[in-house]
Structure formats: C-alpha cells, structure tokens
C-alpha cells in the first residue's frame, strides 16, 4: 500500500522524464519522432537488399510463407524494443547519480522510465509494420487485435531485466560493454533475420531455442500480426513464466541493493 502511494506521488515525475527524453532525443532533428518509423523501415530495406541481391534468395526463402520484409520487421520490432529498453535502462540509475545523491526519489523510477520511453518509441515503429503490411500485400487478420498481448509480455520482461541490469551496473560498469556483445549474440540466436524453418533439421538448436524468451515473444507477435493464428494456452504460459520470472528476479536484485547505490556512485 505504501509503495503504491509513493508510486502515485511520483507518477508525474515519470511522465515528465519521459517527455524530457523525447524532447532531448529529437532535439534539432527536422523529422523528429518520425525517425521512430523511418529507422526500422530503412534497416529493413538494407537487410532485404542484402538478402535478395547478395544471396539471391528473393522475397521468400527457407519455407517462409510471408515476404521477408514483414517477417524481418515484425521480429525486429520486438527485438529492438527489448534491446533498447534494457540497454538504456542499464545506465539509467548510474547516470542519475547527481539526483540520487541529492534528493530522495524512489530509484526504480529510472529504469522504469527508460522502459516506458522505449515502449513509446516502439508504438511509433508499429506504424512501419502496418505500412509494410499494406505495401507487401499481407492479409490483415482479426487476430491483430491481440497485438498488445505479446507487447505487454515483452514490456514486463524488459522491466524485470532492466531492474536487474541497472542495479548491477552501479557496482560493475563492465556489464555495459559485455551487454553490447550479448545483445548482438541474442539477435543471432533469435529467428529475426533468418526463418525459423532452417532450424528444423537441427533438433538440438531447436531444443535450445525453447529457452530463449525473445524467440517466444517474437513468434507470438508474428502469429497474431501476420500469420493470423491465436497462440494456445501453452504459448501464453511460457511467455508469462518468462516475463514474471524475470520481473521477480529483477525486483529482488534491485530491492536488495538499492540502499547501497548511493555509496558506489
């Protein structure tokens, strides 16, 4: 109850910080927030060009029944969201040291704010997904209304992971460098730029894939957006377990260490 009250009290700070981040990010850029739409589109063009021109694999390959463009973009939307949320959160507590040392603020505000900021960015990049769906002639399914579900799963997961990373970064700055490498590895470990179909002949890799939370969020998102399928109960339970498992771990790590932050800054 007490926690809830302080959260209400600092709700305005949260929205204020998100507003400031948006202001700062697009300061002096002409297109401003449009970049959140353009960026994934341009990345998609680059990758499509690489795959079709260089490898000559055309629009569809590896058993894909949707164009590569939209296959990549849907995967990248979820991946970019999680990776941006976690990597910006990571520095959030440490960069707020000037503030934390001077006034009392609930410290979880900072990673939470970065996650929500990335969330807003991601909502804008959904426009890119819709645009590409229209242009590449993918059918719109009613299951699209379920899109918020995988996005929420990914958000909860990101918040948990951000709590954990931002707390640990205060004590060991090395993690920042390590995490950059980890994120790249994570991207290749998830079927984003390659179709999941090419793993079917590799049962061991397929088995390992089940432990990759990103894989589940990406596949869930694709199911409802472009495949028009409703994931079953088991898929939902797996996603829920990853999300809330991560959230609990993150909250515990953060809570145990937050009183010591100020001594290490």
């Amino acid at each position: 109850m007490k926690y809830f009250q302080t959260f209400i009290k600092y709700k305005y700070l949260l929205s204020n910080l998100i507003g400031r981040d948006i202001k700062v990010k697009y300061r002096r850029s002409i297109l401003g927030i449009l970049w959140s739409v353009l960026n994934p589109l341009l990345m998609m063009l680059v990758l499509s060009a690489v795959f079709s021109a260089l490898f000559g694999m055309g629009g569809r390959f590896g058993g894909l029944n949707v164009p590569f463009n939209i296959y990549y973009l849907t995967g990248a939307t979820i991946y970019n969201f999680i990776s941006e949320a976690t990597s910006t959160s990571m520095m959030s507590v440490y960069s707020a040291s000037q503030l934390i040392k001077k006034v009392y603020i609930p410290k979880y505000i900072f990673p939470l704010e970065k996650c929500l900021f990335s969330f807003v960015n991601m909502l804008f990049s959904l426009i890119a997904v819709f645009l590409v769906m229209i242009f590449s002639g993918v059918d719109f399914h009613l299951t699209m209304f379920l899109m918020p579900v995988p996005i929420l799963y990914a958000l909860i997961f990101s918040i948990g992971m951000s709590f954990m990373l931002s707390a640990l970064t205060v004590f060991f700055r090395d993690i920042i460098h390590l995490y950059g490498v980890f994120l790249t590895a994570w991207m290749y470990a998830t079927p984003i730029i390659y179709p999941i179909g090419i793993l079917e002949s590799r049962p061991k890799l397929m088995f390992l894939m089940k432990f990759n939370p990103m894989f589940h969020y990406v596949e869930y998102f694709r199911s409802v957006t472009i495949y028009g399928a409703i994931p079953n109960l088991k898929d939902n339970l797996i996603c829920l377990a990853f999300s809330f498992g991560m959230l609990i771990i993150g909250v515990l790590i953060f809570k145990n260490r937050q009183d010591k932050f100020v001594l290490y800054m």
Binding site: Y10, Y12, L13, N16, L17, R20, K23, V24, Q98, L99, K102, V103, I105
Partner: peptide
Amino acid sequence: AGFDMDLTARENIYLNGSVL
C-alpha cells in the same frame, strides 16, 4: 538538484517540482 541546464526555467520548474 535535477535541474536540466539545457531546459528553460519554465520547464525546470515543472521537472524539479516533479522530482520533489
């Protein structure tokens, strides 16, 4: 504490107020 020097005083009054 928590003034963002790039922002104007008007914006900072809101930001710092919310910090408090």
